[in-house]
Write a protein that binds this DNA or RNA. Structure first.
Lengths: 140, 140
DNA sequence: ATAATTGCAAATTTTTTGCAGGTTC
DNA sequence: GAACCTGCAAAAAATTTGCAATTAT
């Protein structure tokens, strides 16, 4: 369990109740879209405003606490910033799962962009397909 | 130069003036957001409706003519469906460039997801950084 | 001829903004 | 106490919808 108050303060943001609950939910679910974050946090904090969620997500992305995960045909989800990894995106249920980032692929992309004189700052790898759960559900 | 009329008909869509001009522009620019497509096509076809662009983009994505390219912090762009490739996304100017998809990385992702029993259907690799042009502009 | 497609206008949904009151450090 | 945040309500922006007229096959 991360210490959200410290994380926020170290990122130059005040540790408000709202922000800590947003982070708590995102960490718990892994990846969440804005509307779901709002719904979940509002369960325990009904006075929460959707505008506050929007403002905070943008702010926390800008301050390096959260990362946006853009997904084909859906709204972006957000995750805590963590070490490089790959996303498996299920085209059936929409769930996103993390997998360790492959060292070999990593080296490839770095050398490849270096050759091009392109200053690589971030990699984003999404693999789309049907997850194990949905495959079972479809088979039955 | 692609034969857009044939491409559309083979995909089960009627070859309308609007659709052909949308495809023509997307192929010319490489990757375009909806608003830009509308603006460009409207230059030569002023009666075009933005709603028509929306409807057609969705339809052409569904029918495998176009692919969505979701991008962090921006609206999605659209490209013609083509063989697997990687995107270099410039964080300064927003331009997207294609690069050949790396065989090694490809094999890695395939074997990796196979192990997981995840039915891989599509890979999406975006590398974010500063392109050569913007790097020069910043330096000066 | 028929079924699909367009453009328009209106409706809906999503995101942003301004500001008064409240909170964090 | 100062700067930052929140919630609200309103505004703006983005996307979708219904439908009559038009177009492609």
């Amino acid at each position: 369990m991360t210490d959200y108050a410290t994380l926020l303060k170290e990122s130059g943001l005040k540790a408000t109740f709202q922000r800590m609950h947003i982070l708590e939910n995102i960490e718990h679910y892994g990846h969440m879209a804005i509307e779901s974050i709002y719904e979940e946090v509002a369960k325990t904090h009904p006075s929460l405003s959707l505008a506050t969620v929007y403002k905070n997500i943008i702010l926390m992305v800008d301050n390096g606490v959260l990362a946006e995960v853009p997904i084909e045909g859906k709204k972006s989800k957000y995750e805590l910033v963590k070490s490089d990894h790959i996303h498996l995106v299920c085209t059936e249920c929409g769930e996103v799962e993390d997998r360790p980032h492959n060292e070999n692929a990593d080296a490839l992309f770095i050398s490849m962009t270096k050759e091009e004189n392109f200053s690589l700052s971030k990699q984003q790898i999404n693999l789309y397909g049907v997850c194990v759960h949905c495959k079972e559900a479809i088979a039955s």
